[in-house]
Amino acid sequence: MKIVVTVKLVPDPNSEKKIDPNTKRLVRTGVETVLNPYDEYALEAALQLKERAGGDATVTVFTMGPEALKETLRKALAMGADEAVMLADAALEGSDVSATSYAMAQALKKTGFDLLIVGGLTDDGSTGAVPGALAEYLGVPCITNARKAEVTGGALQVERETDSGYQTVRGPLPALLTTALTFGEPRYASLKGIMGAKKKPIAILTLSDLGLDRPVGTDGSKTQLVNFAPPPVRGKGKTIEVADATAGAHAIFDFLKEKKLV
């Protein structure tokens, strides 16, 4: 079974984010690049499924991004992925959801997979739309928000998380799965994994390897970002003066009741 996990290389979520006013894109220089945190959950799911499958199951991490960030993939290899594939081409810059998903799908067709696991959201773009679009371009079933998954008899059985409870969904392979954060905490890379990661291959694909039949990048995008604004600065909290602790407790209770929190 070949499991492919898509990962995005994003600016460290703990850093202050800035948007370039000219390009309207997130500034990615001067901050460290890390694996998109949601994708680490997807990778954890892939590694668990690989361990359960045993035998010749493999995990490949796939990313689309600038080749200069290639080494960021080592962390995924250190956590236990077997190999990495990167789609890197300057012509991909400015791709929206549609162009991104199209280009990724063509590369993933070339890479091949039985099971494609995708994080539910990226920390930078936060569209949440790539998994669905990717499944469409690939023509495979898409099962989202999985908390558990099992591969049996060539089919994928998934326990999905919804607001009202859990659903069990089955579909044939090849298929696309997105993971909920309840699938399991991403494992730590072990020192041996880290030492071994440098020997694992990272293959680079460019657009000329894919033979696309439509443009990607800014020209191939159906949507344009027209404006951006930082979130409003949070105002000062409300201060209530009270006579004693009992009055304070009542004031807090009334406040929570007003907000329908109790």
């Binding site: 080494e71 080592r74 962390k75 250190a78 730590y188 890379a189 020192l191 880290i194 030492m195 990661a197």
Partner: peptide
């Protein structure tokens, strides 16, 4: 890069 992964881990 390897040393950074050790640090972050």
């Amino acid at each position: 890069d390897e040393e950074r992964i050790v640090r972050d881990t």
